[in-house]
Design a protein around this nucleic acid. Structure first.
Lengths: 347, 347
DNA sequence: TTGAAAGCGCTAACAA
DNA sequence: TTGTTAGCGCTTTCAA
């Protein structure tokens, strides 16, 4: 069975191709309701669907978007970002080409070439975590950066508001009465970690809490890293030990749980913890479930697509900051009683 | 700046468009090396890239593939499957349209329509976990099913060999000397769970171990489900308790760890565990790291794409079974000494 | 209210 | 070894 063409419909309905085209594209003007009807039926009868390729050639608009990303496979974040972009594309009648470059710049250059050859209407350049990147030279103007920011500007971009996220996280702890709050930081994600640290410092300053360098430790972004860092923290003299810990991410927070359990400490009775990422299958599944800060992947994906498609405004050179909401679960409580006479909810 | 066309190159190089076309498509015959060179340079000079749209209209081949999936967002498995499909597509000069339907059949129908209109050269229908599905009526012949099998056949498909995976898992336990082996099963994934159960029974039979119905329990596929099921198992009289547990998935295995720790049991000294999925950020990150069976997502994705593109043979109506390799880590050891005088590695 | 025809940028059959 | 030209299936201008 061969594809039906517009001329087949025209013949079947006894009209010209112009009329069929007009009807298929819902061009309001002219064409009587009766003809309209007849064309519709003929089209349905022979199973006609317009060729996007022919239309694309004629109109020079393909209703497709390219989404180039560095890594979809190696991070469980990808899904939500794609889903957001995807949904926005679908709602606007566009299809998305997805290309994963694995971080290889040769593949990246090929991808840009291929997508350009396909005459995509828009392009999104996505990273799987918040970073500043050197924009490939061949990237077309108008490309939107998703979860990253181009080194030298010149493009529209969206990233999570990690500073505000850090603020929210530490505020949870301060609000519960904690004054000795640690930040388990990392060297593996420079931008985000520094921003969250700024948030941490801001809350401490606001609350009139002196900064204790011993409470700012670094580790690798794994459960193991979190466990090791926590061990270090819990070996401090009792009056210097943290009662609350803010972790760079949820995986590290899992390590906090492990370290605490090994010492017979219970969360949140003896130690409060706040994570970051709201990573699926991790945060909610801890015992007790982890209070954390969510990364707005879905919303960022949607924002990027809407801006790329021109249905939402976006400024070049002013990176859009997307809010990271706090997800309150059960890993934060008041500090233990013996820590001192701080304000707490219960005696 | 407007796109350069083939005629621009022809004019610049002082040749006909045919010559340019021939050179750009590396058609060996005719065209002298010198002309070839001249055309190449002209093309580079004016930044010419052939339009895939025009070419697609002319050749009726778009070098694009559609990949329809039910859920990319809600499962961390997606990445590897996409990566496999993606890599195979790229290696064969194809671009992939990704559409996530969220399981909505109206969106699914739209997706098939849109992809057909785009004249994709091939179509892949992917599920995020092994299942039997009713193929949408509008699905074109030749579509390849990925991680699922069409109810009524008629298509090529690939799924994990869950039965063999179950065999491998339980064999790990038997090889370590275990005779009382539990299977924490689930109702949430009928196909895979039944297949893995068959594997479990096969190994028991081979090893001459009597089947104890008390050791076959069911739970929801979460850490919580695994913990509850394990509690039930560990409450059995000591001589009926399992010394090894095979879990339907890694998340449930995490629950086994929790339950064991609550009772002061150490893994693998007091209890051995084997999971399934080799889920990233979970299996390897447990303490001790979890021995598990990997789902071959990347390879299935690649297989599906290669078959869809016709670079690999695939039979209709004989679902391709992809091996699930065992990932040996540290959660399996010999059963504890007091369990009886079974063969073990150490006295 | 409808139709004829040009042309989007390319490939390929055919001619030279 | 190279060029001319028809035509892929559609949209859109212009004419009727």
């Amino acid at each position: 069975m061969v594809r039906a063409r517009i001329s087949d419909v025209a013949a079947a309905a006894g009209v010209s191709v112009t009329t069929v085209s007009l009807v298929m594209n819902d061009v309001e003007s002219r064409i009587s309701a009766e003809t309209r009807q007849r064309v519709r039926e003929a089209a349905r009868a022979i199973g006609y669907a317009p060729s996007s390729v022919a239309r694309g050639l004629r109109t020079q608009q393909t209703r497709t978007v390219g989404l180039i990303s560095d890594q979809i496979a190696t991070t469980p974040f990808a899904g939500d970002m794609l889903a957001g972009a995807q949904d926005a594309a679908r709602e606007n009648g566009h299809l998305v080409f997805l290309i994963d470059t694995g971080g290889d710049s040769a593949i990246e250059a090929d991808a840009i070439r291929a997508l350009t050859a396909q005459q995509v209407d828009a392009l999104i350049y996505a990273c799987m975590w918040h970073q500043v990147v050197a924009a490939p030279a061949s990237l077309p103007a108008g490309t939107v950066f998703l979860d990253c920011r181009p080194e030298n500007g010149g493009f529209r971009s969206v990233v999570p508001d990690d500073r505000a996220g850090g603020v929210s996280a530490v505020r949870e702890l301060v609000a519960a009465g904690h004054r000795r709050i640690a930040y388990i930081d990392t060297d593996d994600a420079p931008i985000a970690s520094a921003l969250r640290h700024e948030g941490y410092l801001e809350v401490l300053a606001d609350a009139g809490i002196a900064v204790d360098p011993a409470l700012h430790v670094r580790a690798e972004t794994t459960a193991r890293g979190g466990r090791i860092a926590t061990d270090r923290l819990l070996e401090l003299p009792e009056d210097q030990r943290p009662t609350g810990i803010f972790c760079f991410n949820d995986r590290m927070a899992v390590g906090v749980y492990t370290a605490a359990h090994h010492r017979g400490l219970e969360i949140p009775r003896d130690l409060s913890v706040v994570g970051y990422d709201d990573q699926q299958l991790i945060a909610a599944e801890q015992d007790p479930p982890l209070t954390t800060i969510a990364l707005p992947h879905y919303d960022m994906g949607r924002w990027a697509m809407e801006v790329a498609l021109g249905v939402r405004a976006g400024d070049e050179d002013v990176t859009h900051l997307m809010e990271c909401p706090v997800i309150r679960r059960d890993s934060v409580g008041p500090p233990p009683a013996h820590v001192g006479k701080q304000n707490r909810r219960r005696a």
